[in-house]
Design a protein around this nucleic acid. Structure first.
Lengths: 202, 202
DNA sequence: CGTAAAGTGGACCCGACAGTCCATTCAACG
DNA sequence: CGTTGAATGGACTGTCGGGTCCACTTTACG
């Protein structure tokens, strides 16, 4: 089903996705039109539909995929070695800083919220993304266990799921209220509790 | 600025808001048109703009306000007396059940996500709603303290904020993936941790 | 070269939908 | 009653924006 693309073609396609991602980050899914993307990427309607025959939805999915990869890749340096409490705290700071910097435009949050329900394939991207992110967190928890800083009976998956939910919830609230207090609280509390699971009883 | 409304007028206004809320719950903000609302409520364009001169946005804010009240009112029986662990668990079950039943249509979530950013007054509604909800949770935590089931040095506000974020995050993930596992995990874990803060060190 | 396929530009179409306007009906009240 | 303002109905407008189409240009390749 994939058309052949020359190197020029691939470049243009890339440019469109990147540009669309930028526009989406600035204006949000709801207020972004194809014309916006065209203006930003110096392309024409023809090209847009040449590279994304299914139209807007297909483009959005492509952007979602890009942003998803980017978010994870972005955190990889921190997510990759969560084997000490200091590492976890550094990670937490990065997450908070990142989202505060973005202010109230979350490339993924809004994208998922809006696109996730409309198209069928889009939801798959979201599910996959969630799975990968949670898996990274779970790996971090396991690293703590391996390092002997956390007892073996901690429910790793539940912890990871709860942490992911904490981030999402904090971001969600940040997006709609403009305040990051909840994100902070959720992560601080989540980490503190995880830590207590180590020091505490058990 | 408020026009005089006869009793008939007030009834119609109510009917419009209720009907709009129903439609929004079913179709989501993005896909709901004024025509949908008109059809559902047996009203005409004229009436819509008669009662909501600012147009769609004003109507959406009205609905958001209604739904916000409804959600809190709905949980009040449980939120109101969170002075035992059993009460907290009952509350958690109700929350999960409620959201699972709604499936992937959250009257508030999507409403806030979409409306919250567009209009200025809408954001205020969201902030207010967040504040009230968190306050209810905080009251519950304090009730636990008062009942001697939780040490006094627990950071009540942080706990409440984290719990709220957990709910929001869980719901957010439920909405975009269709799975409630994260909501469950977040609430279970949050409660377990709160409980441990009571039994545990300290 | 030449020709076929990929790439590019943009005019055009059309449905959807928010919002306007006015004519008509209804109800309160002196 | 009659008149005034609220309540209602719905035709109409304008715009926005996704999607189609086709003419034209560039690139790949024998």
């Amino acid at each position: 089903m994939r058309r052949e693309l020359t190197s020029k073609g691939r470049a243009t396609r890339e440019r469109i996705i990147e540009g669309a991602a930028a526009v989406l980050r600035e204006k949000g899914v709801a207020f972004t039109t194809l014309e916006d993307v065209m203006a930003r990427t110096h392309t024409s309607k023809g090209q847009l539909f040449h590279y994304f025959p299914e139209g807007k939805d297909e483009l959005l999915v492509a952007v979602a995929r890009l942003e998803a990869d980017r978010v994870l890749e972005d955190q990889q340096p921190y997510l990759g070695s969560l084997d000490s409490w200091e590492a976890w705290e550094r990670w937490r700071d990065v997450v908070i800083e990142r989202y505060e910097a973005q202010g109230d435009s979350c490339p993924l949050g809004s994208l998922f919220q809006q696109v996730g329900r409309s198209t069928p394939g889009a939801r798959a991207v979201v599910v996959e993304m969630t799975r990968r992110w949670q898996e990274s967190l779970a790996a971090g928890v396991r690293a703590l266990q391996a390092a002997g800083r956390l007892p073996a009976d901690v429910d790793v998956d539940r912890r990871a799921a709860a942490l992911l939910a904490a981030i999402q919830g904090g971001v969600s609230i940040l997006l709609s209220t403009g305040r990051s207090a909840h994100l902070r609280a959720a992560l601080d509390q989540g980490l503190a509790d995880l830590r207590r699971a180590g020091d505490g009883p058990a």
